[in-house]
């Protein structure tokens, strides 16, 4: 990968990203939420986040909002990740290491099929 450092480069990248986003009409908003309380971070939430971002980069997935939440009181299930597809109810996943995160991105975020074995029933 060539070194990209200047903000001039960023201008071009911005234009490209904007065009691609307009071409791909995403069906509603896609939200990925990683829990990052002390418990989440200690359990590996940063690796989970990194895996989500790597997936977006490598598979060129446009239109995903990635955000965070604090401790939700299920510390033993950390790292926790939540996925919201459009108007559908929120799906909460537990024990989401880097591999599971990649699986969720592929199956659920991209193809709409929740990864059943990691869902936490609340």
């Amino acid at each position: 990968m060539p070194a990209i450092k200047s903000f001039d480069e960023l201008k071009r990248i911005r234009e490209e990203a904007l065009q691609k986003k307009q071409m791909k009409a995403t069906p509603g908003n896609v939200q990925v939420i990683v829990a990052m309380g002390t418990c989440g971070i200690a359990a590996g939430a940063r690796d989970t986040m990194k895996s989500v971002l790597n997936y977006i980069e490598n598979e060129k997935v446009s239109g995903v909002t990635v955000t965070q939440t604090g401790c939700i009181g299920l510390c033993e299930q950390e790292p926790i990740m939540q996925v919201v597809l459009g108007d559908q109810p929120k799906v909460v996943y537990g024990k989401v290491n880097a591999q599971v995160a990649e699986k969720i991105m592929k199956q659920h975020v991209q193809h709409g099929q929740p990864v059943k074995e990691n869902i936490i029933q609340i």
């Binding site: 070194a3 990248i13 990203a17 986003k21 980069e57 446009s62 995903v64 909002t65």
Partner: peptide
């Protein structure tokens, strides 16, 4: 970075590559 990007999200793949590269390098 924010003022350059304006309405484009940091999580667009091209933007992510740029920002990650900037920080890592």
């Amino acid at each position: 970075l924010k003022s350059e990007l304006q309405d484009v999200s940091l999580t667009e793949p091209e933007v992510l590559t740029f920002v990650r590269g900037l920080l890592e390098e």
